[in-house]
Nucleic acid binder design. Structure first.
Lengths: 349, 349
DNA sequence: ATTAGCACTCATCTATTGAGAGTGCTAACG
DNA sequence: CGTTAGCACTCTCAATAGATGAGTGCTAAT
């Protein structure tokens, strides 16, 4: 995980200066010099002193100099310290909260649209790239299972799960099944499985069901293989992206090569799942900074993520990707708030 | 539409030269001069003569000069001529065709995966951005309609249509309906609607059904509103993108501002539907060049598109977006071939 | 320990220059 | 009269040089 160190090499004044440099750089995107710090932040010390402290901070690895004798910018380690030690999440304003709530209320009901819109909200408010992983199919609980015969050899399996997901799957039969049998199997499965999660089902129950269904002998095999087929893909666990282009506005992405490297990673679903996989289950947020990322394309970026829950069960995650120079205090608070909203809206549906 | 002119201002030799310039520029991305044409193409005329012809071609608007005294590059009008008059589609090689077929066969069955994969194939083979519009819900024919009661107040409408689509929709009822009534309505709708397209249904039948169903009096209203609700969105008509990043490798997109403008357009579903809307219904391909596009972000781009059919009915479209300097002969042939494959695979399912 | 002062460094900007590619024009040629 | 050779001209691109300015590191004074 992130290099959790003691940061014992930093005293109170260094801390102030590091914060000033970081804040300044976050808002200007320009290397910051000792003079401007002395001017804008009333630390009661002269540029020269600040210079000395900055030299120490650089040696300790918290700051970097793009070139000799330009101002300093925070290193990944500097941001890590900023986030771990100094971060004071900037609670969204009352009016912003209301605006977010209103957006959510508009999209209530259609779960897919809600998720998609969540990504849009995040992207718009942060002006960065937003990701939302749709509720985990594995973790959703079964409400209904229905089998609809389409023709002699094909069956439509309809699976309705808790957070409002409807998952359908066409299954090819190896031989015909009578309508009566289908009714019976359907009824049995429905009664037996209601309220279980997909994960439970896959982990333990498939065998059990197979033996229970063996009364129907020849059908048992058919029915189970059918179930397995129906559950076999990852289901509707999709990843929603919004505002990836927003990043092209950022001064750190004026170089097409960097942009390309970044977008290549962003476009790959698997990598994005992975990137959000470290998200903590609780109501906290996770921040991954720069080179802590696995993929080189994300080295110039940080990811702020949080998970959301449906009725207390972790279901998916949301995240913001932006340059390491991002407004952590605002974004961390926003991601946290939006994840809470999403949990709430998904739970009450 | 494309400026269909007579191109009477071009004689045979000018044609040869225009083709040479265009071919050369397509493969090198550098403005091409009279000398290199004289060297590489054995036209039996000297650079000076070529210069004169090129000057004429420029005056007539087929060529452009990025700056005085650099080589010429084709203008949009030049490409238009090239595409309309001189294009000889470069039939994909036998081995390439086989490779494409193999890719299709692998993904058979799952319609969504097939569509998605089609985009991937196109993007990979052309190294440009590929779009595929999934089969039009409006044009698909109804195979089954089923109503499944979820609880007292909610009904799941399951609609299975011809090219293997399953569309579901949860409908909130304003009051309860008995199981018997649901059965009856379901049965009635199923018998009545099978084989119709959604478009037919929406256009003419809703009223008719309403009156027929009026035997069930109070239910009529309920049932129709339910149908209308179920059909109300555009359905699963989605747009699949692949390889948008490919374009960042092209020399014409080394400027981040251009890239941003382009990606902003590409990301917007509505605009992409619009961009593919001119696609001709038959088995031909449509080429939209540069400034013929509606949106400024696409001015540096051309779009090659073709529609595909399911059992003879136009269902969707596929397209390639790349810089105006693209290998039209290869790409036009490829798009045509892939659209034919897709039609075939979707029709036999 | 802090600060003022000063020399030094380095990126950025602007001009200048030279090279190279390619054109347009003119005059000669068949 | 169409074609071609020759030549001056234009314009981009890359390299160079000087000026500018922000910011540092160091030293000596407070």
């Amino acid at each position: 995980m992130s290099s959790q160190r003691d940061f014992h090499d930093i005293d109170e004044r260094k801390k102030l200066i590091l914060r000033a440099v970081t804040d300044e750089y976050i808002s200007t995107a320009e290397p910051v010099g000792s003079r401007s710090i002395a001017r804008r932040y009333n630390l009661g010390i002269s540029p020269a002193t600040i210079r000395n402290e900055m030299a120490d901070l650089e040696e300790a690895g918290y700051l970097e100099q793009p070139h000799t004798s330009s101002g300093r910018i925070p290193s990944d380690k500097g941001y890590r310290f900023y986030v771990d030690v100094m971060l004071e999440p900037k609670e969204p304003s009352r009016s912003l909260k209301q605006r977010i709530l209103r957006e959510f209320i508009q999209r209530q009901g259609e779960i897919e649209a809600l998720i998609q819109h969540t990504a849009k909200i995040l992207a718009t408010l942060t002006n960065q790239a937003a990701l939302v992983i749709s509720p985990s199919f594995q973790e959703s609980t079964i409400q209904h299972i229905r089998l609809l015969p389409l023709d002699e050899m094909r069956l439509l399996v309809v699976l309705v799960t808790d957070p409002g997901f409807v998952n359908t799957r066409i299954v090819e039969l190896s031989r015909g099944i009578s309508g009566g049998d289908i009714e019976r199997i359907s009824g049995y499965l429905n009664g037996r499985l209601k309220g279980l999660t997909i994960r439970d089902l896959r982990a333990t129950l498939v065998n059990e069901i197979q033996s229970e269904l063996s009364r129907y002998r020849s059908l048992a095999e058919e029915a189970t293989s059918l179930l397995v087929q129906a559950l076999d893909d990852t289901g509707p666990e999709r990843i929603y992206r919004e505002g990836t282009v927003n990043m092209l506005g950022q001064p750190e992405f004026q170089d097409v090569k960097k942009v390309k490297g970044l977008l290549e990673v962003l476009e790959e679903d698997g990598l994005m799942f992975e990137a959000l996989s470290g998200t903590p289950p609780g109501r906290g947020t996770e921040v991954v900074i720069g080179h802590e990322n696995r993929h080189a394309g994300l080295y110039p970026c940080s990811i702020v993520s949080a998970s959301y829950e449906i009725k207390g069960r972790v279901s998916g995650a949301i995240g913001i990707i932006g340059p390491t120079r991002m407004d952590y205090s605002r974004i961390v608070a926003l991601v946290k708030y939006v994840s809470e909203c999403l949990s709430e809206f998904l739970s009450e549906a």
